[in-house]
Structures are given as structure tokens and as C-alpha cells.
Design a protein around this nucleic acid. Structure first.
Lengths: 194, 194
DNA sequence: CCTGTATGAATGAAAG
DNA sequence: CTTTCATTCATACAGG
């Protein structure tokens, strides 16, 4: 049998794309309902399009669950390494750690990388909070870090985006498409009519 | 290297699912536009789904969003340019791009520059290969083939998930509502994978 | 069931 | 260019 080969990454991309669509649909339907609740729209039914092909009857989204969660063992090891002070376990180190942790459950280098990033960042934030010396007795939308050179309102470019026409924009491109092209090495049309 | 193998049928199913979503979304949007031609929907973002007008408390000015975020259109354009292979855009190029994008939302040259930097860097990191067989774990200066022939096994990592139900459903449910003509999921991108 | 919180992941910006 | 930091988004999970 002729088969195609995909990497896990590609699989993930596909899953995401579908997820995105599922999400949009959900949102649109919601919006639609809200709006039409007060209008007559009998003529505007969508037919049977309404629901989601990708949702199980349990209401569980198929596209969900993609988030890694460290097992207790892994977490323990990670914490230990983190505490060793070896700040940024760059590249090679990551690989080592990953392969070690792999024996205690599914994990990838990216996971490890992210974990350290987050661990570090949050550990830092924690400290800032625990230093109540600086008082901002006012509702500050943001805490000015005393030790960080917050080059804030400098050349940051905000974007309020009051733009209400977002709907149109959203569909012009599935976004992740750029990584999907190699999925179709088959000279056939993209959508063989069978 | 781990890869998943799909049959043509499975590929087809996936493609169809995406098509269906694309189609539904299109219709919903269309309908939505028709209905809300003059209604106020601002604040309802579809993209990230936050319907947050950013007016947190007592009219405290929205100090948030100090970070630029590309609008879908901008992103699309950027991706396209990126895919054209013309790596690091020159200074002049950046200017051009910026002015083009300006028409689709607030943006600065710095934003564009950063975007390309990041895009490239991350795209490169994508091809991390964690081949356990690959011993000789010396300094892995392994720069991969010029073209992406990566087979990274980056993916979703489930652990001893006692709840395996969703995983399998992914490829089933080919049937969805009727109407669906072939909507090409991703018509372009002729990047040679080789 | 719905709301709040912890935390994995994504990404713009900046440092090195 | 490569690596790191900061902020934000989204989700798993606990509590009401």
C-alpha cells in the first residue's frame, strides 16, 4: 500500500490547524447565536453545518491535549538540576537531560528547554514580589522592576487595534500553512475527487 | 528518527476535515457580515479570542499591550516574504516591507527586523534532532543539510495517560455534514522539500 | 458546573 | 546570528 510519511511535527501542525478552525467555528457560532437571538433569521440557516466534526460526543475536543506534563520523577530531577545553579543548561546539556528524563516518561528537548525558561522567569518574578520594599500604593498596571532597566515607553510600538474588521483578515491564511506544503508530494491534485 | 505513516485515505480524511472547517468558517463569516453589517462588535476578536476591551479598572489607562503583535494580514505577508527564501532582508528591503505592512496596521521597521530574526532563528531550531542512536555526543556542531530534511521527533508527549480516548479519534469521523466541495486547504507554497 | 490558579508553550524584544 | 528574557495565551486541575 502506498503511504505517506509525516513527522510528528507535521502531525502537530495539522492538529493545530484543525484546532484553529474548530476554535473559529465555535466562536462564530456563538456570535451568531447571540446576534440572531434577537433577529429573524429563519432564512439564514446554515443547514446542518452546525457542529463540530471533531468533537466527541463527550464534548471533548479532539484537538486539545497537547500539553506536556512532567511526571513526579521528571519534575524532581528537573528541580534538582535547577537548584544546582547551573543556570542555563544550553544545548548539549539539554540533550543530556532530555535523554535522561526520557527514561521516566515522554519528554522532548523543547519541553526541557521551556521548563527551564519558565522556571527561571517565574522564580525571578517571585523574588520581585517578595520584595515589598518598594511600594506602589497605587494601582499600577505594571510593576516597575527596580533592578531591571525597563526600557519601557521608549520605542515600543503599541497597537490598540480598534479595528473591527478582523473577521476578514483571519481567513486569508491558515497561518501555519507555511509548514504544510511538504505534506503533499503527490502530484495529484490537492483534492482528488476520487 | 520517528515518523508516522499515513495512508492516502488518512491524508484525505485530514484534508477533508480541514476543508470542512474552512468552508464552515467562510460561510459563518459571510453570514455574520450580512447580519452585523451595522452592529457593534468591536472587542470581539476572533484571533486570540479575547473580548477584552482592556478597560480594567476605573478607566485606568490601558498600559497593556506594549508589545507589537502582527495582524493576520501582516503575518501572512511576512510569511510569504520569508518563504521566498530571500533571507535577511536588507535595510532597504525592511523599509519597503514596513511601509507595505503599515497599511495593515501599526508596525515599525524594528518590528519587521525582529520578526525576521526570530523567524529564522526559530525555524532553525526546529530541526533539532534527538537521535538516541547518535552517540558520539561530542560537540554537536551538526549543522543539518542546507535544506530542511529534518526529522525531529518533537511532538506531543503523553505520558502514562490513563485517558487515551481522544488520541484515536483523530482520524475517524470522515463524515460531517454534507456540503463540502473541495476547498483547497493550502493551494500554494511550492517549496521544494528537497 | 463554573471560576480561579499553576504552568506549559508561543513569541516579540533585546542582549551577547 | 544566537541565546536569553519578559509577557502573554491557553489549558489542566483544584476549589466553591
Amino acid at each position: 500500500m502506498y503511504v505517506k510519511v509525516m513527522t510528528d511535527e507535521q502531525m502537530e501542525v495539522l492538529r493545530k490547524q484543525i484546532s484553529v478552525y474548530a476554535n473559529i467555528c465555535e466562536k462564530l457560532v456563538e456570535m451568531h447565536k447571540a446576534i440572531t437571538a434577537q433577529q429573524d433569521l429563519s432564512g439564514m440557516r446554515l443547514g446542518s453545518l452546525y457542529c463540530d466534526p471533531l468533537m466527541t460526543s463527550a464534548g471533548h475536543k479532539i484537538t486539545s491535549r497537547q500539553r506536556w506534563t512532567p511526571t513526579p520523577v521528571q519534575l524532581q530531577i528537573l528541580e534538582r538540576i535547577f537548584d544546582q545553579g547551573t543556570g542555563t543548561p544550553s544545548k548539549q546539556k539539554i540533550k543530556d537531560i532530555t535523554s535522561e528524563l526520557t527514561q521516566h516518561g515522554q519528554i522532548s528537548e523543547t519541553n526541557v528547554y521551556n521548563w527551564f525558561q519558565n522556571r527561571r522567569a517565574r522564580s525571578k518574578r517571585k523574588q520581585l514580589v517578595s520584595v515589598p520594599n518598594n511600594i506602589d500604593s497605587e494601582v499600577e498596571t505594571e510593576v516597575e522592576s527596580p533592578k531591571e532597566k525597563k526600557a519601557k515607553s521608549e520605542n515600543i510600538h503599541l497597537q490598540e487595534d480598534p479595528d473591527p474588521r478582523t473577521e476578514d483578515l483571519f481567513f486569508q491564511n491558515p497561518g501555519i500553512s507555511s509548514e504544510l506544503h511538504s505534506l503533499d508530494p503527490e502530484p495529484n491534485k490537492a483534492e482528488p475527487a476520487f
